[in-house]
Amino acid sequence: MRPFTYERAADARAAVKSASETPGARFIAGGTNLLDLMKLEIERPQHLIDVGRLPMAEIEDTPDGGLRLGAVASNTAVAADSRVRGRYPVLSQAIVAGGSPQLRNKATVAGNLLQRTRCAYFYDTSKPCNKREPGSGCGALEGLNRNAAIFGASHACIATHTSDMAVALVALDARVETLTPSGQARSFPILELHRLPGETPHLETHLVPGELITAVALPPPPPGGQTYRKVRDRASYAGGLASVAVAGGALALGMVAHKPWRAVDAEAALASGASPSEAMARELAGASSAGRNDFKIPLVARLGAAAIGEAREGAR
């Protein structure tokens, strides 16, 4: 790790102020992804602002019948919350499908959303990677890209977003609440948080530098069943090859794009009476693969259809 200075933020406003005034500053809370990357010098912050103990760990009911998840609530706390389990089971299921208990005990809501890709070419600093080193090229494009994106990839980057939790949040139409460096609170749909790679895969979100996620707000749960299904190479403690979150009529896919992928074409097809398989085929008409990840297209087709069926079954 490169040397850095460390401060424990007094409050959220002080945190964003410090972040905007200190060169190379980054927020840290759980640290399970940031420290992983700092050890490899993929991340090289000069200053860490610890927001882990700010009073942003609450999980509280909102007046509209939804739930607000504090940004530094641990993944475990969210998954275990009785309101989450009762009203948003897809979220609880998605969280416990990710990482390990130890990681989930430390990892936070905001950190989970902001975790970076697990692409092997991103992790090996000797390899070209436009995300890690803009302009260096993409090692995965013609490489061992078994786990690469099938939606929204570019010639600059075919990496995927690997969060489980975020897939469920996208299906649940969550909103992200932030504090900007100027101290303004803002809120926007979670689908507007992450970017597609385009020419700038190193830019992963639409947050402005120094902007702090303070909470994620869930609207009241949608009518209908919910489920989360994840496929992976081993039974637990492994990144996914693909995942599907179903929440009523909403459908989101994981590990298939640079961001959690809202399957709007499939949703539209389902709304107009298509079968789950037909709906998935509609969505996957827009997919493209890079060779070794060809299997993801039929995999998502089958997994999506099965998950939709399970959610409907569960709603009965």
Partner: peptide, 15 residues
Amino acid sequence: GVRINACLSLAVMHD
């Protein structure tokens, strides 16, 4: 009282 990976945490975060 909660299990974590000690490798992925800075000691100064545990004051």
